[in-house]
């Protein structure tokens, strides 16, 4: 075998085994930077909208009469980065908490709730909040298609009669 064939073999080897490693490192670095930024933005906006209460119950303050109410809906589709997907699939072997999904779903839910609030900044409360999570095919598979989780939040935004 001559030298050029050796070089090509080596290049192929690096490409085949190096690519997933490169993607994993890329996913880890960029993904965690983006996640940290997202959490910072979520915390900042949560503080900003802290005065608008959300209730998962059907009514908030029974003593006050409600003058207006309508549906608000918000959703967000998120996915794991390449590195965390590998971690999550390794988790399947040993069991236990899948922390990469915990933080993913946590920020998706908080983001969806914030988008609800941002739609109705001048209402008094949002009642009957419902949160639903659905799997958009192939979340667990790294090879086939786009894994994604959709979180949808909806509720009724109400305004109370002004008190004199």
């Amino acid at each position: 075998m001559d030298d050029s064939a050796h070089t090509i073999d080596l290049l192929l080897l690096i490409l085949v085994y190096g690519m997933p490693v490169f993607l994993a490192v890329f996913g880890l670095v960029v993904g965690s930077i983006l996640e940290r930024r997202h959490f910072a933005s979520i915390r900042q906006r949560e503080a900003q909208y802290a005065k608008l209460p959300i209730f998962p119950t059907r009514s908030a303050d029974a003593d006050r009469s409600v003058v207006d109410g309508h549906l608000v809906v918000a959703s967000v589709v998120v996915s794991l980065d390449y590195f965390k997907k590998i971690l999550a699939s390794l988790r399947n072997i040993f069991g236990g908490n899948v922390r990469s999904y915990e933080s993913l779903l946590d920020r998706a839910k908080r983001e969806a709730i914030l988008r609800l609030k941002e739609q109705v900044p001048d209402c008094d409360a949002i009642i009957n909040l419902r949160l639903e999570t659905s799997n958009l095919a192939n979340v667990h598979s790294r090879k086939k298609g786009i894994g994604g989780v959709e979180v949808i939040a909806y509720g009724t935004a109400i305004r109370y009669r002004a008190e004199h």
Partner: peptide, 30 residues
Amino acid sequence: KHVGRDIAASFKNLVGGELKGYTELLGDAR
């Protein structure tokens, strides 16, 4: 989903986070 969105989403998929194209798609559908 359509192919163009899928390709864009598969790049976004490497780094994780929100897939805006899909959020919009499902919002329109809803």
